[in-house]
């Protein structure tokens, strides 16, 4: 089921939380939704899951409009709200049954679905516990389990891995990746590495507008200018090496790196690559090359660049 966000605008008072947002998410795609606090991520997700209705514009889930037929849309969506609200007094198993009932899962299938979700989310030993007795990580699992109880085609997850330990984060990521193959998933997160590891595409919004859209690779390409390499040639006089490096035609700039030991940062000219030149230089002079690493623009840098403007 595709999600089509068409010119979505949400105004609170005189503040535009979301400003004419347009994008599409295709079936089988996992979209990472990034943005600083208050950028409008949660508002957008709430609009898709019919909790809020757009001031202007529309959201279509599988061709069904959230403004015209929210009840139908809700059936196909599994939504995990930001702080994962749950009924603390209920035992897990009762809570999942209640969710299944609300989602209209057939009575005969409820038992089996609940069992499956308990299995998938690793809640087997806790299933009779009250939710208030669980740790945050387990509560998060219960949240995910209730989100997926009706096997929805669309998953909207607002910061699904907050409060989990590293092992659980990896598990949840794997889980999301696995289900993401046949479903449409939108997930928001503050952890950029997580988005990079799980998502097929990244969308960064700031002040309610899209500021970057593409795969992690594309975003990085866009943000980085010229190629940057770190080079270390531990033997030999650093001044000679510095001069020789400067003489390589593809290199525009050479810099000492502070940590000594003859490490240099070199920047290539636009569209050029210098790794071959550096290597040839070392071969010619019989120098031992102990490091030649391209410096990648980190997603953090991309994020900072597009959201600071």
């Amino acid at each position: 089921m595709d999600i089509v966000i068409d010119n979505l605008t949400k105004v609170y008072g005189n503040q535009k939380a979301v400003d004419s947002l347009c994008f599409t998410v295709k079936t089988g795609e996992i979209l990472g939704f990034l943005g600083p606090n208050g950028a409008g991520k949660s508002t957008t997700m709430k609009a898709i899951s019919c909790y809020l209705s757009p001031t202007l514009g529309d959201v279509k889930v599988g061709g069904i409009s959230v403004t015209e037929n929210p009840d139908e849309v809700k059936k196909h969506i599994g939504y995990l709200p930001e702080n994962n609200p749950l009924y603390m007094d209920m035992p897990i198993i009762d809570f999942l049954k209640f969710s299944a009932e609300l989602q209209g899962v057939f009575k005969e299938k409820t038992e089996q679905r609940v069992k499956e979700m308990i299995q998938v989310c690793g809640l087997k030993n806790e299933k009779y516990k009250k939710i208030s007795e669980l740790s945050k990580g387990y509560r998060q699992r219960v949240g995910l389990a209730q989100t997926m109880i009706h096997d929805p085609e669309v998953l909207i997850l607002d910061e699904p891995t907050t409060g989990l330990d590293p092992n659980q984060i990896v598990e949840i990521r794997e889980l999301i990746k696995k289900i993401g193959k046949e479903k449409t998933v939108i997930l928001s997160s503050h952890i950029l590495a997580e988005v990079e590891a799980t998502c097929d595409r990244i969308l960064i919004i700031n002040k309610g507008k899209i500021v970057a859209n593409g795969t992690a690779e594309q975003l990085r390409k866009k943000a980085e200018g010229n190629e940057i390499l770190h080079v270390q040639i531990p033997e030999g006089d650093h001044n000679t090496i510095f001069r020789e490096l400067q003489n390589i035609p593809t290199i525009s700039m050479v810099d000492y790196l502070k940590d000594g030991n003859n490490r240099f940062e070199i920047q290539s000219k636009e569209g050029e690559s210098s790794s071959k030149g550096v290597f040839d230089l070392c071969v010619k002079n019989g120098w031992y090359l102990s490091e030649l690493t391209p410096v990648e623009t980190k997603l953090e840098d991309v994020f900072r660049k597009v959201t600071m403007e």
């Binding site: 909790y51 009840d71 809700k74 709200p81 009924y87 609300l102």
Partner: peptide, 14 residues
């Protein structure tokens, strides 16, 4: 207050 209203209202119920 607990936010469970949001969870309820995003299920197919009015």
């Amino acid at each position: 207050k607990a936010g469970t209203m949001e969870m309820l209202l995003t299920k197919p119920i009015t």
